[in-house]
């Protein structure tokens, strides 16, 4: 009887899970399916392509436009992530460990940045960047990305730092470490899961951004993939670019999946176990 109910329950849960996954995956799979269709069958409404083709993929890699955007995306997202995580780590460390004047103000301001509607900042940023001559450059995108990623980074990281026993830092100081050494050699390695989690979140944010990418760039020089996709024309001016756009959409999810998989393996829980007797 009991066994029956558990298998029943399992079945029910399994079904529910499948339903959720299917619901979430349909649009993604649809795009993937479109990317493998030929222009002729593109609009036939079939989920599984009748004629498989890799033409769309060939097309996007032949156009300079896409490859260039891909390079921009990767470069900009990586640099912004690196800077945001390093700065965020230092700020979060100070917030979780030190008592300094203006601490609450700092936390408040970073919250404010996170809450600020980004749309309303686009035109001022456009003007500022033109004045500063960084419009349509990598720094022109990296800087706003860092600004908006920092609150996120500070919040997640300070939560991680708070979990690390304070005694470890005192012990490091007693062992002869400076504040910097204590941070680099004891605290940072223990906060690694937090650093990786934050890196993933920030990277995804930068990678997927469309708003800044479309408004703060004007040429291929610094246009990232999400922005470049909207300018897609396909192999020739007169071709319908739907298939190519779908292929590009599939391609740009690959780096992010790789990025997440790479860092996820490093996010092992229980890294601090054994430090202090609980």
């Amino acid at each position: 009887m009991a066994v029956e109910t558990t298998t029943r329950a399992k079945l029910r849960w399994g079904l529910l899970d499948v339903l959720v996954i299917v619901f979430a995956m349909v649009p993604v799979l649809w795009i993937a399916s479109l990317s493998f269709k030929t222009p002729a069958t593109l609009t036939d409404g079939k989920f599984i392509p009748r004629e498989w083709t890799l033409d769309n993929y060939r097309t996007i890699f032949e156009t300079d436009q896409f490859v260039r955007a891909l390079v921009n995306s990767i470069g900009i997202a990586l640099i912004a992530t690196l800077v945001a995580v390093v700065l965020g780590a230092m700020a979060a460390y100070a917030i979780s460990r030190l008592d300094f004047p203006g601490k609450r103000l700092l936390v408040g301001v970073s919250l404010l940045i996170a809450m600020f509607p980004q749309v309303s900042l686009v035109s001022p940023l456009f003007e500022i960047e033109r004045q500063l001559k960084i419009f349509d450059t990598w720094p022109g995108l990296i800087l706003p990305y860092i600004t908006f990623a920092l609150p996120l980074a500070i919040y997640t990281l300070s939560a991680f730092f708070k979990q690390i026993p304070w005694d470890l830092e005192k012990a490091a100081k007693m062992d002869g470490a400076t504040q910097g050494q204590a941070f680099r050699r004891v605290i940072a390695p223990l906060a690694a899961p937090g650093l990786f989690t934050t890196a993933i979140l920030v990277f995804i944010f930068c990678w997927n951004d469309f708003l800044f990418a479309i408004s703060l760039t004007s040429t291929e020089r610094s246009r990232t993939v999400p922005a470049a996709l909207s300018f897609f024309t396909g192999a020739s001016q007169f071709e319908d670019p739907t298939g190519a756009i779908c292929a590009a959409a599939v391609v740009i999810t690959v780096p992010i999946i790789l990025f997440v998989l790479f860092f996820q393996r490093r996010i092992v829980s229980g890294l601090t176990s054994g430090a202090v007797k609980g």
Binding site: D167, K170, K173, M174, L190, T272, A275, V276, K277
Partner: peptide, 20 residues
């Protein structure tokens, strides 16, 4: 003087071993 310049060692109640 900072702790590192006092040349003193300390044993903590929680042991505070570096887990990594």
């Amino acid at each position: 003087k900072a702790p590192r310049d006092r040349d003193i060692a300390m044993v903590f109640q929680s042991y505070a071993l570096y887990p990594n």
